[in-house]
Structure formats: C-alpha cells, structure tokens
Amino acid sequence: MIRTLMELTKFRLSAAVTLSAVFGFALGGGRDIGPLLPATLAVLLLALGVSALNQYQEWESDSKMERTKRRPIPSGRVHPDAALAVSLALIALGTLLISATLKTTGLLLFLFVPLWYNGVYTTLKRHSAFAVVPGGVLGMIPPAIGWLAAGQSLADPEFFALGLLFFVWQVPHFWLLAAKHDADYRAAGFPTAVEIFGDTGFRRVLCVWWMLTVLCALYTAAIFGIRSSVILLLLAALAAATAAAGGRIPFRQLTAERASTLFRGINLFLLGTMTLMSIDTI
C-alpha cells in the first residue's frame, strides 16, 4: 500500500522538488529552521498532490506507454476516483500549511501551482512539445518558498538569478527525458521536440538550452558572490566539464542511452551547483 502510494505521488521526484526549497532557504541566508520545516513539508505535500493529480489526468495516456503502463491507475491497483481524492487532499493540506506559514504570498504561490501544472501545462503538452517552456515557471516555485521562509523578498536580484536558473534548467531536463522515451511519447500521442526538429535539429536546440543552463548557473554564482576560492574553483570546474559535455551534443547520435546519461548529467550539474553555493553561503 505504501509503495503504491509512493508511486502514485511520485515520491522520489517530489522529494527532489522539496530539496530545491531547502536550497532556496540556504541561499537566502536562513538560519532559523522554525519556518523552514513547515514550509518544506508544505512543498512536499503539494508536490505529492499535483503529481497524483497528474497521474489521474493522464492515466489513459499512461496505459499506452511502456514506461508508465504499470503505474497504479493504469495497472488497476488504484481506482481513478481514489487517486483524485488523495491528490486533492494532499494539495489542500499543503496549501493550508503554507498559508499558516508564509501567509498570503505562500498561499498565492501554492494556488498557482495546480492551476498552471495540472491546468495549463498538462493540457498544453498534449498539443505542443514546447509546453515545457511555460511549464518551466513551476521550477521557480519551490526555491521561492525556501527563499521566503528565510525572510527574503522575491524582488531581490539574487532570487531573480536563482529563479532564472531553475526555469532554464527545466527545458533540457524535460526534453532529455522525452528523448529517452521518444517512442513511448509518440505512441501515447504526445508531440516531441525530436519529431518537430528532427534528430540533428533537436540536438542543436538542446545544446543551446544546455549551454544557457550553464551560463545561468555562472550568472547566479556571480550575483551571489562566491566568498570561498575553493568553492569558486569547484564551481568553475563543474561548469567547464558540463559545458564540454554539452558541446558534444550536436555531434553524437542521441540514443536512448545517451539521452539518459545527459539527463543525469544536467541534473547533477544543478545539484552540484546548488550544493556548492549553499555551502559557501553557510
């Protein structure tokens, strides 16, 4: 039962999303973990809820894809109505908790997430491979919650840089996942960037977004101002290695295995950058 619930709510992905709120708190200079604990719990509850709601919305499409046909709803382990009830309960709990913690600003951000993710983005991605671009806005919300919990303002230039990094990173992150499962997505009727651009064109466009992610990370580090020379050298080495890997994207065939490797690479780049910057801030 617990395992099924974790699958329905995409617990591992939701936990990773919650981690970005912790990074936002650390980079915001937060010291009192009092506001952090309820804020991160609220982010986790919301992430679990919108993930379950997304599975409810897409279970018929999931049943057509090899990667997703064994998920709780298409496999018959969970009735769609039960999944809907669980998702709405989690979203409500998370929203109530963030409202009590961060008041109106937190409430508005949380109300925006299901409207944008489950309303706009989930609908749009059935019709356009570019849905990930407006959908990337959602990547800014968890670090924003952490930033607010640290007592900072979303108008701060530092948060603009941080939010921009999370926004841009979402595009290669999602497109590489879609490229890894390209046949599955097409079978389910989802348009893909590979289908639109062709293999060569897609690799070129992917390379641009990959390099933009690296540049945004460097911009974020510059805006925050890295104090430790060791951290600065590690960030520079990480950025150089990631840029070198991205520079090879247009020249090598993007097989499912290579897309998977690059997917892990861009995720580890963001994780490494956030970890190093957080250590420097602390």
Rank of each mutant, 00 (worst) to 15 (best):
M6H: 07
E7Q: 15
E7G: 04
R12M: 03
L13S: 08
S14K: 11
A16P: 00
S20A: 07
G24F: 10
A26L: 15
A26C: 13
D32S: 05
I33Q: 02
P35Q: 09
P38A: 08
P38S: 07
L45M: 14
L46K: 07
L48R: 10
V50M: 13
Q55L: 06
Q55M: 14
Q55R: 09
Q57N: 15
E66L: 14
E66D: 11
T68F: 00
T68E: 03
R70W: 06
R70F: 10
P72M: 02
P74Y: 04
P80D: 07
P80K: 04
A83C: 12
S87G: 15
S87E: 05
L88E: 09
A89D: 00
A92P: 04
A92V: 11
L93Q: 10
G94D: 08
T95M: 12
T95I: 05
L102A: 11
G106H: 11
L108A: 14
V120M: 14
V120W: 14
Y121G: 07
L124E: 04
R126F: 06
F130R: 12
F130D: 10
V137S: 13
I141F: 09
I141N: 03
P142E: 09
A144N: 07
I145P: 04
G146N: 06
L148P: 06
L148H: 05
A150G: 09
A150F: 05
A155M: 11
A161E: 07
L162C: 00
G163P: 01
L164V: 03
V168E: 00
W169Y: 08
A179S: 15
A179H: 02
R186I: 12
R186P: 02
F190A: 00
E195W: 01
F197M: 12
G201T: 11
L206F: 03
V208K: 04
W210K: 02
W210T: 04
M211G: 03
T213V: 00
V214Y: 04
V214W: 03
C216N: 02
A217Q: 02
L218E: 13
F224S: 06
G225P: 08
R227L: 08
S228W: 01
S228I: 03
V230D: 06
I231E: 00
L233E: 02
L234S: 03
L238Y: 04
T242S: 11
T242N: 11
A243L: 13
A244N: 06
A244P: 05
G247Q: 08
R248Q: 12
R252Y: 07
T255G: 13
A256Q: 14
R258E: 11
T261C: 02
T261D: 12
F263N: 12
R264E: 09
F269E: 10
L270T: 06
L271M: 13
G272F: 09
T273A: 10
T275D: 02
L276N: 05
L276P: 10
L276T: 06
I279V: 15
I279A: 10
I282N: 02
